[in-house]
């Protein structure tokens, strides 16, 4: 079969040398230019206002959680990264204004694709995305964020409105969240305000002083008696119902999937 490629153009020694010299000149010129890179852990680039980073669960002004445990976010998630197990509020332990609250709320950041569909699905605007983007870890466990890691300590002052975004203004708590995961994790260990009535959903007192984040993951989960995270999230769907402990209502095996029966009208 004949070679059908166009014949190579021979530059000739003179033009080839000139081309090499041009290339050398370009690199030599760049030797004296300022580097365009930044020193990441010390310097950080400001994300764009609508940047989709790690999620945060918002609170109402009175401290109650906005999340009502409806599982719409889990249903909307194309990556099946969200686990929500709802429970009934009782007069003794009230977490959210409505009937139900999220007993377990976990986002698996190994799976999350940061598409934001969960935020759009949320009927109470409880789920928002922050500017924290450095979500690297050396263990899989520590990338499954539990409710106590996701929930905001105080109500987010203001969510960026379209006008804010257009103007590029300071958007309240997002300024804090920009500073990264480390600070958010550090703050998780020391709640700045009294826990909501009942004090069950918040990290209990023994949590204080302990470096929050990865360390609190396993313990808080077991203290609350919730099913083992890895098994729940990564096990086969039929196993979920059987492994749920008694104090948590067994979740619907098909809960994370967007089927008709799961998506209830507002």
């Amino acid at each position: 079969m004949p070679d059908e490629r166009p014949p190579e153009k021979d530059l000739g020694p003179l033009r080839a040398t000139v081309n090499v010299a041009k290339g050398l000149w370009v690199t030599l010129r760049h030797l004296w230019r300022r580097p365009i890179t930044i020193q990441y852990p010390e310097q950080r680039r400001e994300p764009f206002p609508r940047f989709k980073g790690r999620h945060v669960l918002d609170r109402h002004e009175d401290g109650l959680e906005k999340c009502i445990g409806c599982e719409l976010c889990a249903g909307a998630c194309p990556a099946d990264a969200i686990l929500v197990i709802g429970a009934e509020n009782t007069p003794e332990a009230r977490y959210s204004p409505g009937e139900r609250y999220a007993k377990v709320y976990e986002i698996n950041y190994l799976r999350c694709i940061f598409c934001g569909l969960c935020v759009e699905a949320c009927p109470t605007e409880a789920l928002v995305m922050s500017h924290a983007y450095d979500l690297a870890s050396d263990s899989r466990d520590s990338l499954i964020f539990t409710k106590d890691m996701l929930i905001a300590d105080a109500p987010l002052q203001r969510r960026p409105s379209k006008e804010d975004l257009a103007a590029g203004e300071d958007v309240g708590d997002f300024r804090i969240l920009k500073e990264g995961l480390a600070r958010a994790r550090a703050e998780l260990g020391k709640p700045q305000r009294p826990a909501p009535p009942g004090a069950g959903g918040r990290p209990p007192a023994p949590e204080e002083g302990r470096p929050a984040g990865t360390a609190s993951l396993g313990q808080s989960a077991s203290a609350e008696g919730s099913p083992k995270r890895t098994e729940v999230l990564e096990g086969a769907p039929p196993a979920r119902g059987t492994q749920a402990p008694g104090d948590v209502p067994p979740p619907d095996p098909s809960a994370p999937r967007p089927t008709d029966e799961n998506i209830s009208p507002r």
């Binding site: 690199t27 030599l28 760049h30 030797l31 004296w32 230019r33 300022r34 580097p35 365009i36 890179t37 020193q39």
Partner: peptide, 13 residues
């Protein structure tokens, strides 16, 4: 270091 600066990077520091 030199290659890094020629590529607008900082190189080992």
């Amino acid at each position: 270091k030199v290659v890094a600066h020629m590529q607008s990077r900082l190189g080992p520091n």
